[in-house]
Lab assay of single mutants.
Amino acid sequence: TSIVNVSSSLNVRSSASTSSKVIGSLSGNTKVTIVGEEGAFYKIEYKGSHGYVAKEYI
């Protein structure tokens, strides 16, 4: 489990790309479970499925 480190919110994306669809967002200090990594993104558990967040904010 890791913590989201942002002051406002962090986009959760459908794939490991800044141009991919935003499927949701997480607020600062939210706990997330990392299940993998791809480039500059972590794959996380998100709403019963998976999403991707930028590593620099975790």
Rank of each mutant, 00 (worst) to 15 (best):
G39N: 06
K43L: 09
I23W: 02
N11A: 15
I34Q: 01
V6E: 07
G51F: 04
T33L: 10
V32H: 02
N5I: 15
I34G: 00
T1G: 12
T18E: 13
V4S: 08
T30L: 07
V12E: 01
I23D: 01
L10V: 15
S2I: 15
K55Q: 05
A16I: 04
V32D: 00
G24L: 06
T18G: 10
Y42T: 01
S19Q: 11
Y57R: 07
K31S: 11
K31Q: 12
V4R: 07
K21C: 11
G24A: 05
S8D: 10
S25Y: 14
R13S: 04
T30C: 11
V6G: 10
G51K: 01
V35N: 02
Y46T: 01
K47T: 04
Y52V: 00
S17I: 06
K21M: 12
S14M: 13
E56A: 12
K43P: 01
I23L: 09
N29W: 14
A16Q: 02
L26Y: 03
I34R: 01
I3M: 11
A40Q: 11
N29C: 15
Y57P: 05
S14N: 08
E56V: 12
K55L: 03
T30D: 11
A40G: 12
S19A: 11
V22D: 02
N11E: 15
K47I: 05
S25H: 13
K55T: 03
S7T: 13
V12P: 00
V6S: 12
S2F: 13
T30Y: 08
V6P: 09
G51H: 01
T30K: 06
L26T: 03
Y42G: 01
F41C: 03
E37N: 05
S20G: 13
H50A: 06
S14A: 15
L26I: 14
N5Y: 07
S7R: 11
S2D: 08
K47L: 12
N29S: 09
S19V: 08
T1C: 15
G51M: 02
S17G: 06
A16S: 07
G36Y: 03
I44Q: 00
S7E: 09
S17Y: 07
G24Q: 02
I34M: 03
T1F: 06
T1V: 14
I58K: 04
S2Y: 10
S49P: 01
Y42R: 01
A16G: 05
I44E: 00
G36V: 03
K21A: 12
V35D: 02
